[in-house]
Design a protein around this nucleic acid. Sequence first.
DNA 1: TGCACGATTCTCT
DNA 2: GAGAATCGTGCAA
Length: 187
Amino acid sequence: MTVAKELLGKLLVHETKEGTTIGRIVETEAYEGPEYKASHAYNNLRTERTEVQYGPKGHAYVYQIYGMYFCFDVTSGRLVGKPEAILVRALEPIDGLGVMMRRRGVSNGQIANLTAGPGKLCAAMGISKKQNGVDLCVPPLRIETGGTRDERQIVQTGRVNIDYADKWKYLPWRFFIKNNAFVSRPN
DNA sequence: TGCACGATTCTCT
DNA sequence: GAGAATCGTGCAA
């Protein structure tokens, strides 16, 4: 929960040969295993997919969903070996807008549509399973301080699309920046 | 080896 | 608001 809030306002930077893209993190969700069913690592489920959640913290956990989209998480928690991760659900585009638009397959229109959603931000930032497990403290994919974050502007609500998680689906482990136009779902 | 489904997005109504 | 697109993953057999 601490890291989910701390990540808000920080910058995600990806340097690729297509160019550098930068986005400010504005929406996150916390997934803590093994006790809570919403987590992929519920019950200490340990497979090829979930493996990086058990590794070093501050690394990328990238997985594919619905056969066509990727989601990007940051591994977190105090203990290596205990699976915890923060899903990044939305970014505010800061730099590399042209590259983002090309990757998203749009030539004009809403900037808010570029990175408002976990699948969208991965496409815009050029994140795929190739980035699974990389250290987010060093290039080419890294998180930087420098963004701003006002503790009073953080909204806390329930997580999105985890109906399968029984009673745990009601936990208020989603955080986003109030009134920010780039949040995926402003409620 | 087979099968149901998802931490989503887009389009159409 | 409903339905499609689309396939890796996890679990049953």
